[in-house]
Design a protein around this nucleic acid. Sequence first.
RNA 1: GUGGAUGUAGCUCAGUUGGUUAGAGCACCAGGUUGUGGCCCUGGGGGUCGGGGGUUCAAGUCCCCUCAUUCACCCCA
Length: 419
Amino acid sequence: MANEDYQTARGTRDVLAPESWQFEALRRIALDWARRFGYDLIETPIFEKSPVFLKVGESTDIVQHESYRFRDAGGDDLTLRPEGTAAVARAYVQHGLAQAPQPVRLCYVGPMFRRERPQAGRYRQHSQFGAEIYGSDSPLADAEVMLLAVQVVDAAGLRHPVVRVNSIGCDICRPRYRQALIDYFESRRGSLCRDCQTRLEQNPLRLLDCKIDVDIKAGAPDLKDFWCEDCQTHIEHVVDAVQAAGIEIHRDRHLVRGLDYYTRTVFEVGHPSLGDQVALFGGGRYDGLSGRMGGPSAPAVGFGMGLERLLSALPEPLDDGEPRRIYVAHLPSFEDTAYELAMTLRRQGLAADADVIGRSLKAQLKDANRRASWVVIVGGQEWENGTVSVRNLATGSQELVSRDQLVRYLGDQLQEAKE
RNA sequence: GUGGAUGUAGCUCAGUUGGUUAGAGCACCAGGUUGUGGCCCUGGGGGUCGGGGGUUCAAGUCCCCUCAUUCACCCCA
């Protein structure tokens, strides 16, 4: 092993080809679908002033214990973004997007940072794709972002994602429920697991997704009985709209989420290949978040999706988009000619390689065999006669092609290979 | 933050009860006659056996510490 000082930092990694290209393909799939749904791409900084994230997650582990927070040389208190929603909310306010034609649809993709113990599907730096829709309190907006997320997962090749959804109520009904929950668990405090004892203090709603105290939580008051009328009809319409699009969606009364800016709708999608407890994407409604950022209080709903997780959950590796390559090999003393021909082919839109380490023809062909589909051999008598040899590496057949017909010939070959 | 497992060439791994210059397969490079790949043959390069300390005449093999990786919990994408 090399010197430890020169290894990637814990929880981070290099992504080499072909995975790097698969990743790029996945980003493109996500962004293409987002655009088709009418979402504009927004790029926010990798780091923000710490309050941007602190404001929205006072009781969440993500911002409390897992953020990369630092002071720069000038003394500014900064944080590497742990998630996308807060930064987008900040941008919405900062750029007066409340004045733009509503609703405002935004999507983003990029790295997020959380200082957790790494494990399967969990990195300290991971990529997230996300989308947010501002300015609509309609259930159709909730459904729309879910449909987009499901569509991306499906387009990547993962069939039949199952959406789980719940409503954690609004400012009116949630406090009542929260109190009922505290009362219930308080009386059973002694039999709760240690984690749940702290949850009771910090974030009682999270008691619901404990995996240990299953029996106790089964008897807990049901949020459903506390929803106000608006919350009740809202969640029903969300479910209807998603189902109407032919997507499978289930109500899960124990689903709550870690970020504490959510209101009403929360949803999550896992996948068997990742294990039950790992989410592929998750999100919800966060009306009023922009208000807490000092701007007009707008209704909004969105999701975040883990790209590494999605990629690793795919049953088939994603097409990495590698084009058919052409290797321009040369006979002795025709090195420059080959080099120039390769450049000409590239200008014609073809993917072409030429030897740059002085290999013998034999070695060039061997090299071509692992990186290209066709070899063009230049030099010798053929070149003097205005022709080159073109060899199909898959079939082994080779023929003489006139130099001025070469681009067309290769174009036809590529076309044929595609069919 | 808690608990378990693992660390030998680029990759996947052997390495016998501690015993001479640490191995294999794959990958890589070069040859197998002058201008042709995939198969085969020959040769070659590449390892401070994660790091440090200890026990021993002798440690990749035993002990301790440390670092890293990995899995689970917590939490989350």
